[in-house]
């Protein structure tokens, strides 16, 4: 519940503050967001399966976002940035779908 409140508060804060994404962060923020979403859905799934652990969630959240951003940064440095970011989005997208499917099965048994 706190998580949901946090999410809502974040959205509201963003709407109020109208933050500008700094230029150096612009290529990496979208990827980091996708990674964070993956961690969120993973956490929700773990919660439903009763295996949720805050520490695991925090660590996986941070490492997911950082690794995703670092992969893209590395890709940019060696000249395959756009391809690598596509790869990251695809992989994370697949994971998100798998997590959502598991959540759906848990919640609706369907």
């Amino acid at each position: 519940m706190i998580a949901v409140i946090g999410l809502a508060a974040g959205v509201v804060l963003g709407l109020i503050l109208h933050p500008d994404v700094p230029l150096w962060l612009q290529p990496y923020l979208p990827i980091a967001i996708v990674a964070a979403l993956d961690a969120l859905f993973g956490a929700l799934r773990a919660r439903l399966e009763g295996t949720f652990d805050e520490k695991v969630f925090a660590v996986s959240f941070v490492s997911n976002t950082v690794i995703a951003a670092v992969i893209v940064l590395l890709g940019d440095l060696i000249g395959v940035g756009s391809q690598l970011s596509t790869a990251v989005v695809v992989v994370l997208g697949i994971r998100i779908f798998a997590n959502v499917a598991a959540i759906r099965r848990k919640l609706f048994h369907a």
Partner: peptide, 29 residues
Amino acid sequence: TRPRATPGQALAGILCLLVGFAVVAQVGS
């Protein structure tokens, strides 16, 4: 989804807050 005020929950809440903030920032930009 019942609130449980443990430090871990608070951390999860803060991380979610970050995600919401980042999403809105990205959408805005």
